[in-house]
Design a protein around this nucleic acid. Structure first.
Length: 296
DNA sequence: ACGCGCTTCGACATTCAGAT
DNA sequence: ATCTGAATGTCGAAGCGCGT
């Protein structure tokens, strides 16, 4: 018996033959002609080196080898049928899935937080793991099935991944609510005299989109503090006279901060949701992506 | 003898993989 | 893209064994 040369359809035929013990009825069930099933039985006999079914009164009688095959064959075919069946419709109420999402702390605040309640309500037994975003590694992480979904800015998104634009973000000027220099919307001159804190995810950066926009006007600002995380920046803003230019969604639920429109045009950015083509049609993953998009 | 069911055969069609 | 050969299917027919 060489499993590589065995036609799986022959096993299905044998299974039905062992049930019916009648070649004619087996042929009817298989939608084949009786001679075809007879020929398949002949091939099965060659493969198993056993006659398997002996002609008897009103049908066939199984050999001991055929009897021994009956149960394991049935179980194997059932397992195969289950394995190749179309995936079940995803049922969030019963799901114990662990969702794996990569995001910056800003994206966690803007995206994961709104989606969390919807996901928790609909799939209370599921869990969520948020990973730090490392843009150069996301393609590999998705390929290795280490992540389900990645939040990414619109520029430089890997083209091999599926993507959905979630929203366009704009920048706002933020400082503490009683900041003495923010009680009136600042002019460009006042803006350039403020002292800024900024986020540099890679650490140590003192220039960002705001500085590029200022440079086009021949102006510059004073960035006196560079931090790696948005969370620490919010603490700095609330407890000092430093100000920051931040994505609007980061501060829309922060009560003790003043949020103003900057006195110059700073190009915003798009936020995308990225996922691997392998997960594109997965019902559970489709549900997760729907929840995230619907929560915005 | 007859009916039933299995096997085998021949002729032909279809599908598929491999070669060109 | 096309050709070729193998495998497998169909149908119809015939032969065989067995039970009635």
């Amino acid at each position: 018996m060489n499993i590589n040369s065995l036609d799986l359809n022959l096993l299905q035929t044998l299974d039905i033959l062992l049930e019916e013990l009648n070649v004619t009825r087996a042929a009817q069930r298989l939608n084949l002609s009786q001679p075809s099933v007879s020929a398949q039985l002949a091939r099965l006999r060659t493969e198993f080196n056993d006659v398997l079914l002996l002609p008897g009164p009103r049908g066939m009688l199984p050999t001991a080898r055929a009897e021994a095959l009956r149960e394991p064959l049935r179980l194997a075919l059932e397992a195969l049928t289950l394995a190749v069946a179309p995936p079940d419709v995803f049922n969030p109420a019963k799901s114990t899935h662990i969702w794996r999402i990569a995001a910056t702390d800003y994206m966690s605040s803007a995206l994961v937080l709104p989606a969390l309640k919807m996901i928790r309500d609909a799939a209370p037994q599921s869990r969520m793991a948020v990973f730090a975003l490392h843009p150069p590694q996301v393609t590999q992480q998705l390929e290795k099935n280490e992540l389900d979904v990645v939040f990414h800015t619109g520029d430089n998104a890997p083209p091999t991944l599926h993507q959905r634009k979630l929203f366009s973000e704009r920048y706002v000027l933020v400082g503490r609510y009683d900041h003495p220099q923010l009680q009136q919307p600042p002019t460009l001159d006042h803006f350039c005299q403020l002292e800024f804190v900024m986020v540099s995810p890679d650490g140590g950066g003192f220039s960002a989109a705001t500085d590029n926009a200022l440079a086009k006007l021949g102006r510059e600002r004073r960035v006196v503090l560079s931090v790696p995380h948005f969370l620490f920046m919010l603490e700095v803003l609330a407890n000092s006279d430093l100000v920051a230019v931040l994505p609007e969604r980061l501060v829309r639920h922060t009560p003790h901060l003043l949020v103003l429109t900057p006195p110059l045009d700073i190009p915003g950015f798009d936020i995308l949701m990225l996922w691997h083509p392998r997960l594109h049609r997965d019902p559970a993953q489709q549900w997760l992506r729907q929840q995230i998009a619907a929560s915005l």
